[in-house]
Structures are given as structure tokens and as C-alpha cells.
């Protein structure tokens, strides 16, 4: 009897998980359509997101050997696009560090305000 009570309690808690106060507030504030997807904002999801592109990259790299390019460029091989994209992307992002030092200036450098152009909007109809 006690076991069945415990098991039904466990099932109901699975169906209606106990929410922390922060989660309750988050749900209350979120758009109704966004509530089922609030897990996207969790730290765990963001931490583990990397595995999706990793698996995808490996799968498509393997497939590249079975479906080679019909007219290959001199540098093409089974997973050439994986290599090109990884290094190109990393180069672009990492170059931002020295470039920012070289090219960044204070926001009012030209003596004009920041660029959010919302002022000119007409009033809502």
C-alpha cells in the first residue's frame, strides 16, 4: 500500500515536477509559447549543446567518403569542407581579438550618438 502510494507520488512528481521559485517566476514571465522551451536557456543545455554539432560534423564527415564531390577541387577530400569551415570560422573569430584592439575607439569617437535609430519611429497606430 505504502509502495503504491510512493510510486504514484513519484509519477505525479514526474508529471508535475516541483518547480523552484526562480522557475515559477521564469514561467510566469515567459510568453506562453516559450514556456515548453525554457530549457533552452538552462546552463546544462548551453553546456551540452556542443555535442550536437560534434556528432553532426562526424556523421557528415564520414558520409563525405561515401558520396565524394563529383568535380573535386585540388584540395577536396572526404571531409575537406569540415576542415575548411572549422579553420576559417576559428580564424575569423580569433582575429577579432587583435582587430578589436587595433580598430576599436570610444563610442562617441566621431562626436555622434550611438546608432539605435528608434527615435524617428512614428507613434503606434
Amino acid at each position: 500500500m505504502t509502495d503504491s502510494k510512493n510510486s504514484s507520488k513519484r509519477n505525479s512528481s514526474k508529471r508535475n515536477p516541483v518547480l523552484s521559485p526562480r522557475e515559477i517566476v521564469e514561467r510566469a514571465e515567459a510568453h506562453p509559447a516559450a514556456v515548453p522551451f525554457l530549457w533552452l536557456g538552462s546552463k546544462k543545455t548551453q553546456r551540452n549543446f556542443i555535442y550536437i554539432p560534434l556528432v553532426g560534423m562526424i556523421v557528415f564527415s564520414i558520409l563525405g567518403f561515401f558520396y565524394p564531390v563529383s568535380k573535386p577541387a585540388p584540395w577536396d577530400f572526404g571531409f575537406s569542407y569540415t576542415v575548411i569551415a572549422f579553420f576559417s570560422y576559428s580564424f575569423v573569430v580569433l582575429s577579432a581579438w587583435p582587430l578589436f584592439r587595433l580598430l576599436s575607439r570610444p563610442e562617441n569617437y566621431y562626436g555622434e550618438d550611438d546608432v539605435d535609430g528608434k527615435d524617428g519611429e512614428g507613434e503606434d497606430a
Binding site: P53, F60, S70, S80, Y81, T82, I84
Partner: peptide, 25 residues
């Protein structure tokens, strides 16, 4: 929509997204 074009394009996309996730981490 040839098989190799889809596969190689997906390689490009997945590798770039992976690079982003890795650099973020």
C-alpha cells in the same frame, strides 16, 4: 539537391557551429 552537395554543405555548417561552441566553451 545532389547527395554530395547536401553532405558537404552540412559539413561546412556543422563544423562552423562546432567551432563556435568550442571557442565559447
Amino acid at each position: 539537391y545532389t547527395d554530395y552537395h547536401v553532405i558537404f554543405q552540412m559539413q561546412l555548417i556543422m563544423a562552423a557551429v562546432f567551432a563556435f561552441a568550442l571557442l565559447k566553451r
